[in-house]
């Protein structure tokens, strides 16, 4: 029987499972223990697993991410939590110059089985230093696998798969998803992988490609489009590196139109990469140029109306989709 569970609780269950199943696993980060996690993901785990395995760190992102890399080299399977992607920039050196490079740079002698989790994205009026979406920065780097669980199933089951990797994995949890509640099937683990996209909604008229926090508004937009007689296919990327070109290409060959919805800034975004790949592999299948809907190119502002205006919304997704289909007349009702 399905149980109703929040994304936050699903992540916590994933952590608990990992800590129970593998003695090498430990969680390390700012306020993961006594405080319970800045987004309350790890609440209660300190009491259950103790301070050795639920390890509060000082505010030293570079230091504790590097220590996670060292601990992984030393035979453990660390999960390092960084409060937000903005703070991860303080640890970028260790992630890019060491974790991602070490296997290759050492000629295959050393590898870094490390999972780094971090919150990402806007929508909580946290302004320009807690709200950005920089997933594409990490997806740029060879040596990393980058995951963006957007559903309850993925939140619950991607982590264990990430921990089976022998190389670093970055896992993005969109802050807007933590409170989402949805049913979780007992056998959901069998349906989760960390390889492929998922088609979250089938459709014939156009393909909406998205990931992470943009999945719910994109699905909402698709439902409204359906009421207008437009059937949109919605692809949830899930795995941002390596990209699953095949699934995207197959969808384009069915729908012949693509709109990419990406909370990152448009310039140099994942949306840009996906757009280029669609051009490369399915150019002659396209009935219209690939379109992108991204965040406004401003540091995310605080005021609610400004923040909302900076982000893709169901209404703007619908508008962009209709424009792509050549239906630019005003929508009424």
């Amino acid at each position: 029987m399905n149980t109703m569970i929040s994304y936050r609780d699903a992540m916590r269950e994933a952590l608990r499972e990992a800590l129970q199943r593998d003695a090498r696993v430990f969680l390390m980060g700012e306020d993961v223990g006594m405080y319970g996690g800045s987004y309350a993901v790890s609440k209660g785990l300190l009491e259950e697993f103790g301070a050795q395995r639920i390890r509060d760190t000082p505010l030293s992102e570079l230091g504790f991410v590097g220590a996670g890399i060292g601990a992984a080299l030393g035979g453990l399977r660390p999960i390092v939590e960084i409060m937000t992607v903005n703070f991860s920039l303080l640890a970028l050196d260790q992630l890019v110059n060491t974790a991602a490079a070490l296997r290759h740079m050492s000629g295959g002698q050393f590898h870094v089985p490390l999972v780094v989790r971090m919150a990402t994205g806007a929508g909580r009026q946290l302004a320009a230093q807690h709200s950005h979406s920089l997933e594409g920065w990490y997806a740029h780097v060879p040596g990393l696998r980058v995951l963006a669980p957007a559903t309850i199933e993925d939140a619950r089951h991607m982590l264990w798969l990430a921990l089976q990797e022998d190389d670093p994995v970055i896992l993005f949890e969109h802050a807007q998803l933590y409170n989402v509640v949805a049913p979780l099937a007992p056998d959901a683990a069998a349906t989760v992988d960390i390889e492929r996209c998922r088609i979250r909604r089938a459709g014939r008229d156009l393909t909406l490609v998205t990931f992470g926090g943009m999945l719910p508004p994109t699905l909402a937009a698709a439902e409204q489009l359906a009421q207008q007689g437009i059937e949109a296919e919605v692809i949830d990327l899930r795995v941002l590196r390596p990209l699953d070109d095949a699934t995207i290409g197959e969808s384009i060959r069915r729908t012949h139109r693509a709109l990419i919805i990406d909370e990152e800034w448009r310039s140099g975004s994942l949306a840009a990469e996906i757009s280029a790949r669609i051009m490369e592999q399915a150019f002659y299948e396209l009935d219209a140029p690939v379109q992108r809907l991204c965040s406004a190119e401003v540091p995310i502002p605080y005021a609610k109306h400004l923040e909302a205006a900076a982000l893709p919304q169901p209404a703007t997704i619908i508008e962009a989709a209709r424009r792509l289909l050549g239906k630019q007349e005003a929508v009424t009702g």
Partner: peptide, 27 residues
């Protein structure tokens, strides 16, 4: 680098090896 002798670089980022050493010791 050399796994056989536990030689972890060879780090060309100044200071880059220190957090690594902390993690190896933590393990």
């Amino acid at each position: 680098f050399d796994a056989a002798t536990r030689f972890y670089g060879g780090n060309a980022i100044v200071g880059g090896g220190l957090p690594l050493a902390v993690g190896l010791a933590l393990a």
